[in-house]
Design a protein around this nucleic acid. Sequence first.
DNA 1: TCCCCTTGTTCTCATTTTGTTCTTATTTTG
DNA 2: CAAAATAAGAACAAAATGAGAACAAGGGGA
Lengths: 211, 211
Amino acid sequence: MTRLTRRQREIFNFLRDNHHSFTRPPSLDELCRALGMASRGSLYRQIMALIAAGLVEPFTCHKHGGIRLTGQAQGPDAIGEQGLPFIGKIAAGKPIEALENVNYMAVPDVLKTDKSCYVLQVKGDSMIEAGIFDGDWVVIEQRDYASNGEIVVALIENSEATLKYIEQTPGQILLLPANAGMTALSYCPEQVEIQGVLVGQMRSYRSHHPL
Amino acid sequence: MTRLTRRQREIFNFLRDNHHSFTRPPSLDELCRALGMASRGSLYRQIMALIAAGLVEPFTCHKHGGIRLTGQAQGPDAIGEQGLPFIGKIAAGKPIEALENVNYMAVPDVLKTDKSCYVLQVKGDSMIEAGIFDGDWVVIEQRDYASNGEIVVALIENSEATLKYIEQTPGQILLLPANAGMTALSYCPEQVEIQGVLVGQMRSYRSHHPL
DNA sequence: TCCCCTTGTTCTCATTTTGTTCTTATTTTG
DNA sequence: CAAAATAAGAACAAAATGAGAACAAGGGGA
């Protein structure tokens, strides 16, 4: 593979950085305009050089193909994020039930933060009045502190985990369920370890009505 | 499978982003108007290409056909975007408030189906007892029928859209809110058009400031 | 029943777009 | 200065596209 000329590198960089802003795949005319060139034929020759270098897919369909980067050329931007790790299930009164194989869920950006997040599945109805139902998934930001009123994953006495509203006063931590049938629990700070804070919640209605 | 032509991709994207705003599966004539085309025959040829590519379901019954996307159509394919289109907001009593720029949200597989899906944001509290709050996002499978007990996006009198439980009996359709302060509404089948069925729901707890 | 309208379907024809090639002039580079 | 790189622009063929006519099947209404 012959070495790229300066202009070829320049055009390739432009392609790599801007290919998403064109009506996919861009045509030669379109790129000419974007690059400020007036001649389609000239651009064509440059593109052919990139094809020879293996950076751009050849025009397969002969006509109206458009310009596509080759797999080897795509930057890290093309590699989709793999999502958040789905860790296990959380049920009030038990330790978090970890999965043997962690797998990853795609999660919309609005449901997570820029901090470290993970996903748990909720077991039980202790937060039902907060709109968090049995079987829902929750996105948790990993953190060891919380503000009053936030919903937290708390580890009690190093043994049981739970998802509850938190209210902290000096010397006392209240963990409040959102379920009229359940009672709040009071602990001293040493008994409770905050493991994370709720930042997102998801529910599937699919299983209710299989095809 | 041959590669899509530029215009074919353009038309497909239009379909993918706007299928929610048509009465049922749109007919060729309807799409022509929406796309600014004058010839049904020309559009037909393009759609056939999309069918050949597996992106659109073939016209099944010769009549009453209409254009539907296949499940594969929203795969990471879509050539570029991944995730589901975020279409707009739905508030009981109003038409769906469409966004000018459709954008895409990564959505976990469990919250969607292999059919054509899209995302709406809920405005209002009519489904609050079903755990769907103001500001939540819902994943909707595009479909023009539903089973009793499902939560549907229904278009009433061709003007207002709403998200409600549905109960269908011969000659009557009930749309039930999940809010003790609201009353169920009864319609004849001709007044109600089902546009989709709820398959997933999402909520963000991040401090309520948009981007 | 008949009539009219809509729907998908098929074809033809003219126009536009796109890749492709070549010649020529200009700029860059060693 | 000479060679290479680059750009402009003309010209061309094939592909893509759109318009429009025409047709058959079905639905709905009078």
